[in-house]
């Protein structure tokens, strides 16, 4: 039996929602502009409809389920 808990994920793909990033990163958007994370955990938009891109603003919830990210 393995000892200790499994390691914590640093990147979490949330079904239907954003990608969580733990720690400090610079996310480059589609226009090549870099955006530095400012929080212990950040959420990167995956539905491409966020008004605060590249960060998630919850807009995916307003989409019908079939249009949300897998």
């Amino acid at each position: 039996m393995s000892q200790g808990p499994e390691p914590r994920p640093d990147v979490i793909l949330c079904p239907g929602g954003p990608m969580l990033l733990r720690g400090d990163h610079v996310v480059q958007d589609a226009d090549g502009v870099g955006h530095a994370t400012t929080r212990p955990v950040s959420a990167v938009c995956r539905c491409l409809r966020s008004a605060t891109s590249p960060w998630c603003d919850g807009t995916h919830k307003l989409l019908p389920p079939e249009q949300r990210p897998a």
């Binding site: 979490i12 949330c14 929602g17 954003p18 969580l20 929080r39 955990v41 950040s42 959420a43 605060t52 960060w55 998630c56 603003d57 919850g58």
Partner: peptide, 15 residues
């Protein structure tokens, strides 16, 4: 809270 809670909801539910 637009940005923070979009993160927190995922953390609260999944993590």
């Amino acid at each position: 809270h637009v940005e923070a809670d979009a993160i927190h909801e995922q953390l609260a539910i999944r993590e």
